[in-house]
Simulated assay, not measured.
Amino acid sequence: MRTSKSLNRNKNPNFAIVIDGETEFWYFQMLVRNERDNLNVRIKPELPSKKSLIDQFKLVKQLSEDYTKTFWIVDLDVVLKETREVKKGEKTRIQELEEYINILSKKYPETIVLIVNNPCLEFWLLLHFESTSKFFDTCASAEKQLKKHLKDYEKTEKYFTKQNNDIYLKLKPHLKNALNNAKKLGQFNIKESNSAISEMQLFFEAKEFGQLFK
């Protein structure tokens, strides 16, 4: 049964995206809305009802059984905040994430892709306008810098999804800049968790998209 399902996935590529924040959910909803006629891949954003790392990890593994690729997008500011708050002697969130990364790389190298934004999605949005490696220790500080370019920016569904002026349409003319700027920052290294990073290019450069975002 699994073989049959796997063959079907290959014929009709489909992506699942597991995210822990509403802003990411709205962003990908708008990508799908605007690129609907160009996409040869079905994309389904997933916002878990439970947002702990373990619940996201379980969902990612479950979805990987039915999707060509499953992307797990992690905002590191949340992980680092919870790491600072953990009681002495207990496993930290960053240690927990490291365990999951090791499992994914060994068991799901082709079907699950982890994407880290540090501190959060706003840093990815900022890279559309700036080439910067500055580390923002909070999402609020990254958002403040973003507002120098998107002066009306709001972290609301109304702003992200406004008809004919949604977040994806606002940023699309600068997408190639963002991809280049993100690649300059390299890959996420869990031993350097205080470094600015966005790995969103791993989604946009998936081979299943062909030349759509290139």
Rank of each mutant, 00 (worst) to 15 (best):
T156Y: 09
N165K: 13
W124Q: 14
L97W: 09
P109N: 10
K91F: 03
K158I: 00
N117I: 00
V79L: 14
D137V: 00
D75A: 06
V32F: 05
G89P: 10
N8T: 00
I103S: 12
N117C: 12
Y168K: 10
E98F: 02
I167P: 08
T111E: 15
L179N: 04
S133E: 15
Y100M: 15
L171T: 01
R33I: 00
I54T: 12
L212T: 01
T132L: 14
T68S: 15
L80V: 00
G89N: 14
N165Q: 09
Q62C: 05
K151T: 01
F136G: 09
L175S: 04
V18Q: 05
K155P: 07
L76E: 02
D77Y: 04
N189F: 05
K58D: 14
Q201M: 07
N12Y: 08
L150E: 08
L169T: 01
P13T: 01
H128R: 12
L125T: 00
K87L: 12
F209A: 10
S193H: 12
D20H: 10
K134H: 07
P45H: 04
Y108T: 06
T111L: 13
D152A: 10
P109W: 06
N117S: 09
H149T: 01
E65N: 11
L7V: 01
G21R: 10
Y168I: 03
N189L: 09
K148Q: 13
W26C: 14
Y67Q: 13
R93I: 00
V86K: 15
Q145H: 08
S4T: 01
Q163K: 14
F213L: 10
F15E: 07
N180A: 13
T156V: 02
K88D: 08
D37N: 11
I17R: 06
R33A: 14
W72T: 02
K11E: 14
N117Y: 04
L185W: 10
G89E: 13
K91N: 09
F71G: 05
F213K: 06
T156F: 11
A196Q: 08
N181P: 03
F188R: 05
P109C: 08
R9I: 01
K50H: 10
H149V: 02
L169F: 01
L121V: 01
I167A: 06
L7T: 00
L202I: 00
N165V: 00
T23G: 09
K147A: 04
G21P: 04
S64R: 13
E192D: 15
A140E: 15
K144A: 11
L7Y: 07
K155I: 00
N118Y: 05
